[in-house]
Amino acid sequence: MEYYCAYQERCYKEVEEKLYSFKLTAAEKEQLLIYLIEHNFINEERFAKSFVRGKHNYKNWGKNRIIQELKFRNISSKLIEIALQEIDSEAYITRFNALAEKHWLTIKERKGQKKNKKFVDYLLRKGFEPYLIYDKLKEFDN
Rank of each mutant, 00 (worst) to 15 (best):
E2T: 15
Y3K: 09
Y4D: 05
Y4R: 07
Q8V: 08
E9G: 08
E9S: 09
C11N: 12
Y12I: 02
Y12K: 00
K13N: 14
E16I: 06
E16G: 03
E17Y: 02
E17P: 00
K18C: 01
L19I: 00
Y20F: 10
S21G: 13
F22M: 08
L24A: 05
T25E: 03
A27H: 10
E28F: 05
K29W: 03
K29D: 05
K29F: 11
E30N: 15
Q31G: 12
Q31C: 15
L32C: 09
L33N: 02
Y35S: 11
L36N: 00
I37G: 04
I37N: 09
I37C: 09
E38Y: 08
E38H: 01
H39R: 14
H39F: 08
N40P: 07
F41R: 03
F41T: 01
I42E: 00
N43M: 07
E44Q: 11
R46T: 10
F47V: 03
S50G: 14
F51A: 01
V52E: 02
R53F: 11
G54N: 13
K55D: 10
H56M: 02
H56K: 07
H56D: 03
N57P: 02
N57G: 09
K59M: 14
N60F: 14
N60K: 11
W61A: 03
W61I: 01
N64H: 15
N64T: 13
I66N: 04
I67T: 12
I67D: 02
Q68M: 06
Q68N: 08
K71F: 09
F72M: 15
N74I: 14
N74G: 03
S77Q: 04
K78C: 12
K78P: 04
E81W: 05
E81I: 03
I82P: 04
A83N: 04
A83T: 07
Q85S: 05
E86Q: 04
S89E: 15
E90W: 11
A91L: 12
R95S: 11
R95G: 05
R95F: 06
N97S: 11
A98D: 09
A98N: 14
L99M: 08
L99R: 11
E101Y: 08
K102C: 03
H103D: 05
W104H: 01
L105C: 11
L105W: 06
K108H: 12
E109C: 04
E109D: 12
K111S: 13
K111N: 12
Q113T: 12
Q113E: 11
K114G: 02
N116S: 08
F119T: 02
F119P: 06
V120D: 04
